[in-house]
Structure formats: C-alpha cells, structure tokens
Amino acid sequence: MKAVVYDGPRQVTVKDVPDARIERSTDVLVRVTATNICGSDLHMYEGRTDFETGRWFGHENLGEVIEVGDGVDKVAVGDRVVLPFNVACGHCKNCERGLSNYCMTAQPVQEWAGAAYGFADMGPWAGGQAELLRVPWGDYNCLRLGEDADERSADYVMLADIFPTGYHATEMAGVSPGDQTVIYGAGPVGLMAALSATIRGASKVMVVDRHPDRLRLAESIGAIAIDDSKVDPVQAVLEQTMGLGADNGCECVGYQAHDPQGQEQPNDTLNKLVQSVRFTGRIGTVGVYVPQDPGASDELAKQGKIAFDYGMYWFKGQTMGSGQAPVKRYNRQLRDLIAAGKAEPSFIVSHQLPLDQAPEAYQHFDARDNGWTKVILKPGQTA
C-alpha cells in the first residue's frame, strides 16, 4: 500500500510500505477514504519530536471496513467508520472510566498512558495517511456512520480528532449558555472550539489569532476576531467584557506558540489566558505540550517547562483542565449533530487532495500559507 512516510525534518514522501492487515482476532481492517493533516502532525514533521524516520503519520482517519477479525461482533464489512485518534482497549482502568485518551493497554511504556495512530511516543500504531489502516479493538474504536457517510465525509472525518478536541476544550473550560468565551488560536482545533462554544450556548465567542484567513473563518460562524498583531488581545478581551475578563477560555495553540513578531514563546498563550479570563474563571488547554523539547529556544522549554504566571493564576482563583481529548466521550453525540444538520465542521476545509500530493500539502500547511486552513488527503483519488 502507499503511505506518507516521514524521512526527516520537513521531508515526507509517498511510497510503498507493507500492507496493513488483521493481526489479532479483535482487529478491523479499514480502507482509508479520508485522512486529515493535523496541526499536531506539524510538530513531528518539523522534527520537534522523536518520531522515527520510516514511520507514517495519520491520526484523523475515516474509511470503509473491508475485513474483520473472528473476535469482532459489532462492526461488519462494508461499514463506513470514523476512528478516534486515541487507540484504546476499552477495558483497562482508564478506559472503563471514560478516559480512552489515557489507555494503559495500548501504550507499551508501563509508566505512561495514552496511544494514537502515527504519533510520537504514543505507541507503535501505524498511521492512516495510507491506503489501509489496522484498527485494534475494532468494536470499541470504530464509530459507525449512516447512509450519508460518503456524501458528508468532510464533516465526519473531523470526528476523529479536532471536533471532539475543540469540544473537550470547552468542556474543561465549563462553557455554559450565556457565557463569554475567549479562544487563543484559530487553527483547526481553535475553530472547532469556537464552533463548540457556540453549540454550548456561549453568548459571545472571541478568537485570538493573526492569520486573516483563519480569522475570517471564525467570523463566519459568528465569533469576534481579535488580531493580536494589531491590538493587545488581553485589552481587547477586557473591552468586550466590561473590564471583567471572559468567563472561560481555551488554549488551542500549544508549545510552539509565537508572539506577533515571530519569536517562539511557549508560555505566551497560557499567560495571556490567565490575564484574559475573569476571577474564578476556567481554562481548557488542548494545545500540545511535551515533557521534553530539545528544539526549543530556551533552557526551560527544552525540559518541557514554561514560565507560567502561577501567582496571578492562583490570585484569580482560576481552574485549568489539560490534556488530550477522550474522543469516544464526545464523538457519538457530535456525529448526531452533524447528521441532523446542526453542525458542519467542514467549514474549515480548504483542500481535498490525493494522497500523492501530501508532500506539497505539508509544505503549505506548515508554512501557514494563506488559504491552507485544513487539508483532507483522499487515498485512491486522482488529481
């Protein structure tokens, strides 16, 4: 099969690799029909993780079941399914508590938890930026789709990661009807957080970024765009909230945050959120942070540490939730919102391209080139 193989920093090629196959009785084999390039993939693409050369990315995957193991009871050949990026067993202590994002079975390092397809330090699982994908514990990990699965695949593929992740940010932030919510980052996850805040009834959603194409997308769903290259975002939020600060906020950028001058500052968005959110407000952090970052610009960040404004955070009595999203906690209800026409996460999609065009797509998406807001790769599609 063909796959998008990582050859080193900012180098990927589409090449032949061994076919994915059924390896255990509980496996499901999926022919991938849509697989997204994620902002998290860029950390690995840029060489900012220990992702091994020769492996392939792809944790946002959707496709058709073409084979099932003898131990699979629910999922059948021909089903259209979307796969949570979390690889999870369904029966460990964390999975039984609904924390499939911290599965202890799928993660081979005993001291760690959590696994994902095609992701650094998240187990040996092959990615789905390929023609085929092996799905372990298939009955647990496959979310079956309805008759509109092919027609609306650009919406449903967002259930693999970014839509539930954006929703998880608003869940941790406690967004409730009538709230005023600020979101730092208008990448795909930030835009999904803005959509989720709207779905949850926020009266005002403010989105901070500096890329005009992304801010236009935020405005298209009714959010207030704040360009931090033109104004102080904290002051802008305070002006929008009678000087009190937002009721809650979401961090959707992560450890490679940059200031408007282009300097990397991993603490930038977190500290601005502390300033932007009111006393006793809540913050949900879904942007990726890592225990070690050898490519960081300062010594603290190289050790996975940042200069967090904890004094002000404590003084304001704020609460913060963090970590990867337990996709299975949300994907079924979000699927049903899509099916009912209540949510259309595909509004962020700028390109749907054949798998062979992945190297070009990575270059544009990594450069944040204008108009490259979200890329779906389509194995089997021709140019």
Rank of each mutant, 00 (worst) to 15 (best):
P84H: 08
P84W: 03
N86S: 04
V87K: 05
C89I: 00
C89P: 00
C89A: 01
G90Y: 01
H91T: 12
C92Y: 07
K93F: 11
C95V: 05
R97L: 12
G98H: 02
G98D: 02
S100K: 01
S100D: 15
N101S: 13
M104I: 12
T105D: 14
T105P: 02
Q107H: 07
P108V: 05
V109S: 11
V109R: 13
E111I: 13
E111K: 14
E111G: 08
W112E: 14
A113F: 13
A113K: 14
A113P: 11
A113H: 14
A113E: 12
A113Q: 14
G114E: 04
G114K: 03
A115L: 13
Y117A: 12
F119G: 00
F119M: 14
F119V: 10
D121E: 13
D121Y: 07
G123K: 01
G123H: 02
G123N: 01
W125V: 01
W125S: 05
A126G: 05
G127L: 05
G128E: 09
Q129K: 03
Q129C: 06
A130F: 09
E131T: 12
L132C: 05
L132A: 02
L132F: 12
P136I: 06
G138S: 02
G138W: 05
Y140N: 06
Y140P: 00
Y140V: 07
C142K: 06
R144V: 15
D148I: 00
A149H: 03
E151W: 06
S153W: 00
S153C: 10
A154C: 04
A154T: 07
V157Q: 11
L159P: 00
L159K: 06
A160Q: 11
A160S: 15
F163L: 15
P164L: 11
T165K: 05
G166K: 09
Y167F: 14
A169P: 09
E171D: 15
E171C: 10
E171L: 10
M172V: 09
M172S: 05
A173H: 06
V175W: 00
G178K: 09
G178A: 11
G178W: 10
G178C: 11
D179L: 04
D179C: 12
Q180Y: 15
T181N: 04
T181R: 03
V182H: 04
V182A: 05
I183R: 01
I183F: 10
Y184D: 03
Y184T: 01
Y184R: 05
G185H: 11
A186L: 11
G187P: 06
G187W: 10
P188H: 13
P188Q: 11
V189K: 01
G190S: 04
G190N: 01
L191C: 01
L191R: 07
M192A: 11
A194W: 03
L195H: 08
S196Q: 04
A197S: 13
T198M: 09
T198A: 09
T198H: 12
R200Y: 03
A202W: 04
A202Y: 06
S203V: 00
K204Q: 12
K204F: 13
V205P: 02
V205Q: 04
V207H: 08
V207L: 12
V207I: 15
V208H: 05
V208P: 03
V208G: 03
D209H: 09
D209F: 09
H211M: 14
H211N: 14
P212S: 01
P212Y: 07
D213M: 02
